[in-house]
């Protein structure tokens, strides 16, 4: 990226025909279509989404139905497995494939939900701190130090367990303990944008502070916030899995992936697929989201934007 900037400074004209003539939207589309990691992550995520939404509708399977005569059946590729239960069954004779399938919905809901909660808290604090500065900024910085110092997972465990676990509680607790990144990034982006000439020009033509924040500042921080958002979705998903694994998150019989792994732990040496399969599911989902986030960072990086130089 740095090198590109360097070349551009030395030789801006050679880029004229290539990128100068593209609109910002086309530029983003073009860059993303050239980014392998981003394309891979996005396609994988779309597939997982489709799987989570339509899988349970199309396939007639239940994650709760128990059949104690069919306990701990191995998956189809193991000896004794059958196509009826592709991933085998768990200790209560429930279809493991169906449980993992329904678990996708829980992970996605909590991941995106918690990241949204965190984003709303972090960005509103961050933009205010960056724009107004002064004592507002000092108060927000203080809040940030407090948030960073609190052991997030431990606090989340305590609150979720003692309030009484449910998906909504988990979403809000994880969201409320994960807004530091949003705050830091949106604050520094706002500070930077605030000092740019187009913001000064906007106040010179009579735009109000509110208009400036809505029209000039927030849209320009968007590219950085979306990157943090994707990364936070991944973090929230892993956090939920950890809480559920420790027994202080989603409660049985709801099929959360973390819970599946906790249940499979008892049989780790005999039925290892019970922990391996949901782990792979978690890993795939988080990898796809992270690859998309990394890609977005490259794509929206102002240093790689010819136009900004």
């Amino acid at each position: 990226m740095i090198f590109k900037t360097f070349i551009k400074r030395l030789f801006p004209r050679s880029f004229d025909n290539e990128i100068y003539n593209l609109r910002p939207k086309d530029l983003i589309i073009r860059k993303s279509s050239n980014h392998g990691g981003f394309k891979f992550g996005l396609s994988l995520l779309i597939i997982i989404f489709l799987f989570a939404i339509f899988g349970p509708i199309i396939l007639d399977v239940s994650p709760y139905e128990q059949d104690l005569t069919k306990r701990l059946l191995p998956p189809v590729w193991k000896e004794g497995g059958s196509w009826e239960y592709i991933f085998g069954t768990d200790g209560n004779g429930r279809d493991y494939f169906a449980r993992i399938l329904y678990g996708t919905r829980i992970s996605l809901t909590i991941g995106f939900g918690a990241a949204c909660v965190g984003m709303i808290i972090g960005v509103s604090l961050g933009v205010c701190a960056g724009y107004f500065g002064g004592w507002v900024d000092q108060v927000v910085s203080y809040l940030l130090t407090c948030q960073l110092a609190l052991p997030g997972l431990l606090l989340a465990m305590t609150i979720v367990f003692l309030i009484g676990p449910s998906i909504t509680v988990v979403i809000f607790v994880i969201g409320a303990t994960h807004w530091a990144f949003f705050l830091v990034v949106s604050r520094s982006a706002t500070q930077k944008i605030k000092s740019l000439d187009y913001v000064t020009a906007a106040s010179a033509i009579g735009a109000s502070k509110f208009q400036i924040i809505i029209r000039d500042i927030i849209p320009n921080t968007f590219s950085q916030i979306i990157v943090i958002f994707t990364l936070e979705v991944g973090i929230a998903i892993l956090n939920e899995a950890s809480l559920s694994f420790l027994g202080v998150g989603i409660q049985p019989p709801t099929p959360s992936w973390g819970l599946l792994i906790a249940e499979g732990k008892e049989a780790i040496f005999f039925q290892p697929w019970l922990i391996i399969l949901p782990g792979i599911a978690l890993f795939t989902l988080v990898v796809s989201i992270n690859m998309m986030g990394d890609g977005l960072r490259d794509i929206t990086d102002p240093n790689s934007k010819v136009s900004e130089e």
């Binding site: 910002p24 000439d197 000064t200 020009a201 906007a202 735009a207 208009q211 320009n220």
Partner: peptide, 29 residues
């Protein structure tokens, strides 16, 4: 009274069109 600034790269908001940028003083005032 209106200002004109030094840096041609930061004087215009990159996400708006030229039309929007130039018309904004009119639509506001």
């Amino acid at each position: 009274i209106q200002p004109v600034f030094q840096d041609p790269y930061s004087t215009l908001n990159p996400i708006h069109t030229i039309g929007y940028i130039v018309s904004r003083p009119l639509t506001i005032n």
